[in-house]
Design a protein around this nucleic acid. Structure first.
Length: 375
RNA sequence: GGGGAGUUUCCAGAGUGGCUAAAUGGGGCAGACUGUAAAUCUGUUGGUAAUACCUUCGGUGGUUCGAAUCCAUCACUCCCCA
């Protein structure tokens, strides 16, 4: 995998780049739609590619391992073949599930024991097994197994948690280096910087993680309960120390505002369930602000969802979409998801253009005002 | 014609003397959602000058300190038998 910096802003840390993978080139900054169970919920790969213009999507180790299981994925020839997405793919390692499945998981130095959220059965993930699974899935970018430290962790916990993540990181790379890709193309492994809300831990984590000389670096453990300013501060601390010539991936972030602010602080890659989940729940991100499409005020608003017309679904009217969402028609969730994802991809694509043109910061400031609005 | 059951707040439907502005579900209205245990969850849903008062359980009249709840009567709905 190769990363090429195209432009770096002179009045901000924002960067435009190109990431070359076995399944195609990704133009950064980029937003990666989340397709946890091998699908971006409600969206066909055709629309993902042609309409939304996604360049890379996610899958999840934990979910795919539980269902359909590695046997099926391997027989399919990997996830690309299984779900028909032939562009770049990134898999999360299950580290976030260590955090989000808190009640049904047990941590040890060896790994994490999970209880399946599907049938309650017990499973163990180790740094080694997580690499093996991601080899079978065949993701272009695999993530190291980490503990996603909660945002309200105290210093002692954050430090211990970070150290565990570092031990696991070494084992991940060991397993990575001792195994080969299964489908004949190169895969990369990204380490994850933890350290919670403590700048000194974050700096330690970056220094430690840089030793791996990986193809890219991720920032984890943010937007997990801490304040927004803290998230920005930590992002800055981390990007300041990460190598310039490698992509930086801020995991799980965020709102359109978060993304612009983080691009400004030198982040290149993002993923978040927000556009898809909130879309399913009736919330739209538009070029003029946020919309709760269930609200009565849209009942007779027969204007397009978003007059900017980024996606073909933007031609559906607010009144019609409101009707679909309120009636619990599945097309409502599909349209809203498709619109939101198209908007997110438009946002990062435009950010890239502005970085290259040299006026990212002023554009960002204009956008932030619009994005804050609630329609 | 004979016998029986019923009428409750937007809907369905509990409630058979005070703890009832009235369970529960639906619908309505609003909010949340950040590496997806989520097509999910939460709040609210008679009115107002609102730690109180007013109006409300088919209509009217009564019993009672007190009635959605008991009695009388009228209206309407449904079921069974002719």
């Amino acid at each position: 995998m190769k990363f090429e910096l195209v432009t770096v802003s002179d009045n901000s840390r924002a960067r435009a780049g190109k990431l070359f993978t076995a399944h195609g080139t990704i133009e950064t900054p980029i937003f990666m739609p989340v397709g946890t169970a091998g699908t971006v919920k409600g969206i066909h790969t055709r629309d993902l590619k042609d309409d939304i213009q996604a360049q890379i999507i996610l899958g999840n180790t934990y979910h795919l391992y539980l269902r359909p299981g590695m046997d099926v994925i391997e027989k399919a020839g990997g996830l690309h073949k299984f779900n028909g997405w032939d562009k770049p793919l990134l898999t999360d390692s299950g580290g976030f599930q260590v955090f989000s499945l808190g009640d049904i998981r047990k941590l040890s130095e060896q790994g994490a024991k999970f209880q399946s959220h599907i049938d309650g059965s017990y499973h163990q993930f180790t740094p080694e097994s997580v690499i093996d699974i991601q080899r079978i899935i065949g993701a272009d970018i695999m993530m190291a197994f980490d503990e996603c430290t909660p945002g309200d962790a105290d210093y002692e916990y954050a430090k211990k948690s970070m150290e565990l993540t570092h031990q696991w990181l070494d084992r991940c790379f060991m397993q990575f280096n001792n195994t080969l890709p299964k489908y004949g193309y190169q895969q990369s492994l990204f380490p994850i910087v933890q350290g919670s809300t403590f700048a000194d831990l974050r700096k330690l984590a970056v220094a430690r993680v840089k030793n791996t000389d990986a193809d890219g670096y991720a920032i984890g453990g943010l937007s997990v309960g801490e304040k927004e300013e803290v998230m920005y501060e930590m992002t800055e601390v981390v990007t300041a120390d990460l190598p310039e010539n490698k992509p930086r991936y801020l995991m799980g972030v965020g709102t359109p505002e978060n993304i612009l602010e983080s691009i400004d602080r030198g982040v290149d890659m993002f993923d978040c369930v927000m556009p898809s989940r909130n879309g399913r729940n009736g919330m739209l991100f538009t070029s003029n602000g946020k919309i709760n499409i269930r609200n009565k005020k849209w009942e007779n608003d027969h204007s397009p969802i978003d007059e900017m017309g980024i996606s073909f679904v933007d031609n559906y009217t607010k009144a019609y979409l409101r009707h679909l969402v309120i009636s619990n028609e599945m097309l409502g969730a599909q349209i809203a998801t498709q619109h939101n994802l198209a908007f997110y991809l438009w946002l990062v694509k435009t950010a890239r253009e502005k970085i290259i043109e040299g006026n990212f910061v002023s554009w960002k400031n204009e956008m932030l005002i619009k994005l804050k609005q609630r329609l």
